[in-house]
Amino acid sequence: MPNTEPTTGRRGLIRALLRTGFGASLVSFLYPAMKFMMPPPVAESAANQVSAGRADLKPNSARLFRFGSKPALLVRTPAGEMRAFSAVCTHLNCTVQYNDQSHQIWCACHNGQFDLNGKVVAGPPPRPLEQFTVHVQGEEVIVAKG
């Protein structure tokens, strides 16, 4: 008997049904599994402004605070001015800190350096830090986007 499989007729039909059946089963298993693996989007914090705590920060110092789900940095410059930035380094996502010796914002991960306007002065970060506006209301510092 020749060992060739017919591609038409009843056998061909059954083979086509089997193949599409397996294919469809595979897709119907994989699609929900793939969808399951992707996390559902979480609503970004709608707040456009947050409190950055009390206004008792000493000149030439800084502190980190939460802005929605991300860290932000409140800096009081040596001249006494309050400034706020996103604390997420634009290079690879590390959290930056204030260096009171160089009066710059510094990222310990890959040595990125920013001035007190958020501009990159050295290292690999490709973009400046996002700057926020600062309002001092009585004892409290309010930081807002834009």
Partner: peptide, 25 residues
């Protein structure tokens, strides 16, 4: 909290880590 001073990855990622430090923006 801020990334701590002297942070570096496991030794087998150090070469990539250091190269990324050197590459200009």
């Amino acid at each position: 909290a801020a990334a701590p001073r002297g942070i570096h990855p496991e030794w087998y990622f150090l070469a990539v880590f250091y190269t990324l430090k050197l590459i200009p923006s």
